[in-house]
Simulated scan of single mutants.
Amino acid sequence: MVPAHIVSQPWPWPHTPNHLAMFALAVRRRDRREAIGQVVRTIVAAPGSARVPQSVVTGEPEIEG
Rank of each mutant, 00 (worst) to 15 (best):
1 M>F: 08
1 M>T: 10
2 V>Q: 06
2 V>E: 08
2 V>A: 06
3 P>F: 06
3 P>N: 04
4 A>N: 12
4 A>F: 15
4 A>I: 13
4 A>W: 12
5 H>G: 13
5 H>W: 12
6 I>K: 12
6 I>H: 11
7 V>A: 14
7 V>I: 13
7 V>N: 08
8 S>H: 02
8 S>V: 04
9 Q>E: 15
9 Q>I: 12
9 Q>C: 14
9 Q>T: 15
10 P>A: 08
11 W>T: 12
12 P>L: 07
13 W>A: 08
13 W>Q: 05
14 P>R: 06
15 H>E: 04
15 H>M: 05
15 H>G: 04
16 T>E: 07
17 P>W: 01
17 P>T: 00
18 N>A: 01
18 N>H: 01
18 N>D: 05
18 N>C: 10
19 H>W: 13
19 H>A: 14
21 A>Y: 10
21 A>C: 13
21 A>P: 11
22 M>T: 05
23 F>D: 10
23 F>L: 15
23 F>T: 09
24 A>Q: 14
25 L>C: 04
26 A>L: 01
27 V>K: 15
27 V>P: 07
27 V>G: 11
27 V>S: 13
28 R>L: 09
28 R>Y: 09
28 R>G: 06
29 R>Y: 03
30 R>K: 15
30 R>G: 09
30 R>C: 08
30 R>L: 09
31 D>L: 01
31 D>V: 00
31 D>E: 11
33 R>W: 01
35 A>N: 10
35 A>F: 00
36 I>L: 15
36 I>W: 14
36 I>P: 05
36 I>M: 14
36 I>S: 13
37 G>W: 00
37 G>K: 01
37 G>R: 01
38 Q>D: 07
38 Q>M: 08
39 V>P: 10
39 V>F: 02
39 V>N: 12
39 V>S: 08
39 V>R: 06
39 V>E: 06
41 R>V: 03
41 R>Q: 12
41 R>L: 07
41 R>K: 12
43 I>S: 05
44 V>A: 13
45 A>V: 06
45 A>P: 10
46 A>N: 07
46 A>D: 09
46 A>M: 10
47 P>K: 02
48 G>Y: 04
48 G>L: 08
49 S>D: 13
49 S>E: 04
49 S>W: 02
50 A>S: 11
50 A>Q: 06
50 A>G: 09
51 R>E: 03
52 V>C: 03
52 V>S: 05
52 V>G: 05
52 V>W: 02
53 P>R: 00
54 Q>E: 10
54 Q>L: 10
54 Q>R: 11
55 S>E: 07
55 S>Q: 07
55 S>A: 07
55 S>W: 04
55 S>T: 02
56 V>T: 06
56 V>N: 00
56 V>M: 03
57 V>D: 04
58 T>R: 05
58 T>E: 12
58 T>S: 12
58 T>N: 08
59 G>A: 07
59 G>R: 01
59 G>T: 01
60 E>L: 14
60 E>V: 06
60 E>D: 07
61 P>I: 00
61 P>Q: 03
61 P>W: 03
63 I>C: 07
65 G>N: 14
65 G>E: 15
